[in-house]
Design a binder for these strands. Structure first.
Lengths: 113, 113
DNA sequence: AAAACCACTTACCTTGGGGTGAGCGCTTAC
DNA sequence: GTAAGCGCTCACCCCAAGGTAAGTGGTTTT
């Protein structure tokens, strides 16, 4: 992912962490419980393996999620939310509530039209 | 702008309102005081006239800003934030603060490396 | 032996958001 | 009379995010 110049703007920095089509979806899922790669594929219909792997790597590098490889004959990898990742979810909360209100407005407009 | 399917997810709805490279910058500027088209050009270095006009139209349609044409010999158009637009700025606040924290982490990582 | 699950990687292609530069109709300054 | 400012629009181009499909190296099920 190309990063924006943040020049001390918190919002731009936050965008650098959350921009990526599936990142917030991934974060949400791993917040609920640890998830395996294939599980996430199924939970996020439409995501490609390439992009899923890619965004998981970036989120790990950004310390939003943790990647754990479990020993054993069959490969097992689990992704879970870090405390910092959870804090992002909370920060996004106010915006989500605003989004709900926005959605309602849009629906009202669609009604009239 | 192509809109995402929101399927009752507030965050996705919010993204539909704020995605656009200059929208949050525009919103911020018109929140401080009403701004004219040329003024915004200067305040947002790098924005092209095409995209500025485009995003202003979309934000007007989304009720985030108000467009007022003033009568007179020379063209004068002013853009200002609606109450709803101001409420978006507030909703983004928590995320911006999170972004600040993220930025600090990134800087620390860059130090070590 | 074949197919299917695991977690990926790699090469290739498509899409659309945004930049570039020119033009428009009008007015005011030099 | 010409340049510069106002607020735009239009045709064209670029590029990076993301999708597609195939492959990899292992194991387990049938």
């Amino acid at each position: 992912m190309k990063r924006l110049e943040t020049d001390e703007c918190g919002f731009a920095s936050a965008l650098n962490a959350i921009s990526g089509k599936w990142k917030m979806g991934i974060l949400w899922e791993v917040t609920l419980r640890p998830r395996r790669f294939g599980e996430l594929r199924r939970l996020l219909p439409g995501v490609s393996e390439k992009v899923l792997a890619q965004q998981l790597r970036e989120m790990e590098a950004d310390d939003l999620i943790r990647r754990e490889v479990f020993p054993g004959a069959v490969q097992k990898v689990e992704y879970s939310a870090t405390d910092f990742g959870r804090s992002l979810n909370e920060a996004v909360d106010a915006l989500s509530r605003w989004g709900k209100a926005f959605e309602k407005r849009q629906e009202r407009k669609a009604m009239v039209a």
